[in-house]
Write a protein that binds this DNA or RNA. Structure first.
Lengths: 246, 246
DNA sequence: CCTAGTTACGTACACCGTACGGAGTCAGGT
DNA sequence: ACCTGACTCCGTACGGTGTACGTAACTAGG
């Protein structure tokens, strides 16, 4: 009546039992599937992760994978939660600002290790076990902050959103270059050439000043750490005093 | 030697001339192609936008489209820039905080009108004509702010990143529901049921308190405007005083 | 006018997610 | 102890995707 992998009902992958009572014991585990998908995505980009590829990667037939992962979206959820398990939490120090800044750095490192993460994180993939652990830890760090719990979650979401977009921008060129038949430098070259030709028209004087005035792109990479730190610090600083609405 | 649509060299779509000198006059325009793609994405979601679909939509053969748009990624760039043209800029008021807050609201409305925008915006699609106009206008609004131009761009990026993640979260459920065979309510139901069952274990006391303590999800929608306004205001407020690094 | 470069587009290929059905395997109820 | 029903495994197949390639029609520059 309701064969396990064939239902057309909504379902949360985490609620589905790993081992059903009845049939033969499964030859694979959810963890090993997630690990294989992460391995492929790290090595060849998220677009290389296909059901066929993951299945053959763990030595299974393509359609066998659907016994473990009913839809491809669920595979993404498994991946996100798997790498979320890489966080190593240290007890809150009492300085919530420092704690959250350090966490943001860990998140950035995580996203550098798994460049597909920002992309997959943007829709709210929902509340796997490691995500719950992470949120609980954030709230523990935010205990000294005197705002209601709901706003603390807003703060965490705002920080993570900023980190995700920051790292996505950081990685945009490199990630694009992966799936392109030419080099990253060549791509970069034609793009800055185009931008330069537009700026040279004089139609965008402020933009031209802002782009050429500061750092000349060469030292930009070295500054990235500083820019990141400053930008997250600013965001956190905005929570120090109550929201200011004139 | 270098046939227009067949090159394997990197290329920025904006640098490619719309009309080449030599051949027959093109039967379509870049604008009409972008408009068709936007129409499809608005009506049926971004995943419905395929080269075939857009081509038949404007009454062309599939492969003819490749004369205008060398890769699908370029189609996305056209779409982003096309809707960026919907901004109607008013002259800077002198209050940069108010101006940028208003712009953020326009961006949010734009993303509600085109729910696929946050997704496509996350990697830095590059500097089409309307994006350049937008940036120039932002810088004009930020003229009263006494920081270097580079940091102004950081501010704009931070605001846009926050808006994008905010709206992405707002739209996540509705957008997910579009491509799913069951209703949004059913999906929502099983997800909150799962979350409730996890919270009931007592493993996440802070999270449980934060989620149940505040608004009971029902009135959350009505509050979205206020939450958005407050969150952007906070971010802007963080730029009032110099970055604070203890 | 010629011809080179461009437009238009049909065909084809490799790949994708996944519906379906059949065979093998095991636990629970009788 | 056996049967039966649920479950695992997986081959096949379908309708879709992006796009490489080849060919025919057309048009502007020399």
């Amino acid at each position: 009546m309701t064969p396990s992998g064939r239902s057309a009902e909504p379902e949360v992958i985490w609620a589905r039992p790993q081992r059903a009572g009845r049939g033969p014991r499964p030859a694979h585990s959810r963890d090993s599937i997630a690990a294989e998908a992460v391995r492929i995505a790290d090595a060849e980009g998220i677009e290389a992760v296909s059901m066929r590829r993951v299945a053959t990667g763990i030595g299974a037939g393509t359609m066998s994978l659907y016994n473990y992962v009913p839809r491809k979206e669920d595979l993404y959820e498994l991946m996100v939660d798997a790498v979320s398990g890489e966080y190593e939490f240290t007890p809150p120090s009492g300085d919530w600002r420092a704690d959250l800044l350090a966490l943001a750095h860990r998140t950035r490192e995580l996203m550098h290790r798994h460049p597909w993460l920002p992309r997959l994180l943007s829709p709210v993939y929902g509340f796997g076990p490691n995500a719950l652990r992470y949120l609980e830890h954030c709230l523990a760090c935010l205990a000294p902050l005197g705002v209601p719990g709901g706003e603390k979650l807003e703060l965490v979401a705002a920080v993570n959103g900023s980190v995700a977009t920051f790292v996505a921008a950081e990685l945009a060129l490199a990630e694009r270059a992966r799936s392109l038949p030419w080099s990253e430098a060549a791509e970069q070259g034609v793009r800055t050439a185009w931008l330069g030709s537009r700026l040279a028209t004089g139609e965008y004087p402020l933009l031209a000043a802002a782009l050429t005035g500061g750092h000349p792109v060469a030292e930009a990479e070295a500054d990235m750490d500083a820019v990141f730190d400053r930008s997250v610090s600013r965001l956190l600083g905005a929570w120090e005093q109550p929201a200011h609405t004139p």
